[in-house]
Design a protein around this nucleic acid. Structure first.
Lengths: 147, 147
DNA sequence: TTCAAATATTTTGAATTTCAAAATATATAT
DNA sequence: ATATATATTTTGAAATTCAAAATATTTGAA
């Protein structure tokens, strides 16, 4: 049986693939232009540390979907470059808590600005109430990944 | 000045980041479950070869936003595993044209199915005409990357 | 209390992916 | 003819990742 939305679906798929393929490259170029010396990978580590509830190694690695071992090497270089410090949790001394330095907050401010501009570009031609459709669609896509 | 859409924008940004962070992992799990032995990286190379107009090394690398040198190593292993063959362009013998084998088309069929299910999950609760809003939003985001 | 099991992290060794620059081959234009 | 441009591969190095082993600390049961 034919799908009446076939054409729209094809377009949405192509747009998503295109966006997905380009976002990292564009974001990296933008950050470089802002004089940020870190890779997108490193920036995403900082972002995860900022967003996660308790910034232990396990929690951060979990948020990033990488192993704790991989995170250790990432944190090692970020520590060397003075973007993070390591603290022991006083309650449970097995846990290492990662804290961001001011250097990191500068980077994250620039990163947030990029995302703001990106989101503004989506909203600029949206009419009242249309944001609901967009949010619902993205929620459906996100929950598709939960099964 | 306050932005009346501030809350909606925040939600859209979080959804996009979440989708972006998870899609590759979920897609990789799916392909593995379908008994595909290739990495997502390798699958995306096959996808680019299929989609590009003329599948020369330069065109493919361009589509993937990687250097031709990087592509050469990727094609080397895909050739070894019998997913592609190399042809010389008879018009211009500098060009190497990459062709997919049947093994690749099997993989791409499974990959397409994943994307179909993904897109269906977006459309399942969309009413008539609402797909226009979604397409317009994604188009705006995509063209934000063009500046 | 004490010690085995569980949990948190780091270390190690290897694979994959990537790049820039040099090398090679072919085509084009003067 | 030959210099220049274009297409690709090779080379050497860096970044990112993983799994498994090693280390440190906590927890729970005897």
């Amino acid at each position: 049986m034919k799908d009446k939305n076939a054409e729209a679906k094809k377009i949405v798929n192509e747009l998503l693939v295109d966006i997905f393929n380009r976002i990292l490259i564009i974001e990296a170029e933008y950050m470089k232009k802002q004089n940020v010396k870190l890779s997108m990978n490193e920036i995403h580590v900082l972002e995860a540390i900022e967003k996660v509830e308790e910034s232990s190694m396990s929690n951060i690695a979990n948020k990033l979907h990488i192993t704790v071992g991989s995170l250790t090497t990432a944190i090692n270089t970020l520590y060397q470059k003075k973007y993070v410090v390591r603290d022991r949790d006083s309650e449970d001394r097995r846990k290492v808590i990662i804290k961001l330095t001011d250097l990191s907050y500068e980077v994250l401010k620039k990163h947030d600005l990029f995302h703001e501009q990106m989101i503004d570009s989506i909203f600029k031609e949206l009419n009242v109430g249309e944001d609901k459709v967009l949010i619902e669609s993205l929620r459906n896509l996100s929950s598709f990944f939960n099964r």
